[in-house]
């Protein structure tokens, strides 16, 4: 607590940048991953309790059997507490974590008034959202 207070007393203007913000974003990212892992774990325990005794057969690719292949069915299923949908929701949270990182980086560059990098980072963000929301490549 004391060291934090001391740092507040001596603010360096360009300190916005780099290490401090990086570490802050890094910690947020790690929290996102741990939250996603907790959701996945909860869903996994329920999934194993419900159908752990069923035979495991993943030898062949059957995309038509997958009902959890969009954000809407995953959220609906998770709200009904369907265990597979809860696992899938955790995986979506995980995939969203780096996307959130890029979004925060946009904010950082806006605060630094770095127009070129606001544009570059926004481009990356749009590409990621395109893949995640529409699922087209």
């Amino acid at each position: 607590m004391i060291t934090e207070a001391r740092e507040v007393v001596r603010p360096a203007p360009s300190r916005w940048s780099d290490t401090k913000v990086d570490q802050w974003i890094g910690r947020l990212l790690q929290a996102g991953v741990l939250a996603a892992a907790a959701v996945v774990l909860a869903g996994a325990v329920a999934l194993l309790a419900r159908s752990g005794g069923a035979p495991a057969d993943f030898r062949h690719f059957h995309p038509e059997r997958s009902t959890l292949d969009g954000l809407a069915p995953i959220v609906r299923g998770a709200l009904r507490l369907d265990s597979a949908a809860v696992v899938q929701l955790g995986l979506v949270l995980l995939i969203a974590t780096p996307v959130a990182r890029v979004a925060l980086t946009v904010v950082v560059f806006v605060l630094k008034r770095d127009r070129l990098y606001v544009a570059i980072t926004l481009l990356v963000l749009c590409l990621l959202l395109y893949g995640l929301l529409w699922g087209r490549a």
């Binding site: 999934l47 059957h62 995986l91 974590t97 780096p98």
Partner: peptide, 25 residues
């Protein structure tokens, strides 16, 4: 690495590549 992987993982989620029972363990 995470950003690169998130781009294709988002697409694969919609194509049914990501199944809970294989992905969670």
């Amino acid at each position: 690495i995470g950003v690169t992987a998130a781009a294709s993982a988002g697409v694969y989620l919609h194509r049914g590549y990501i199944v809970p029972a294989v992905a969670f363990p």
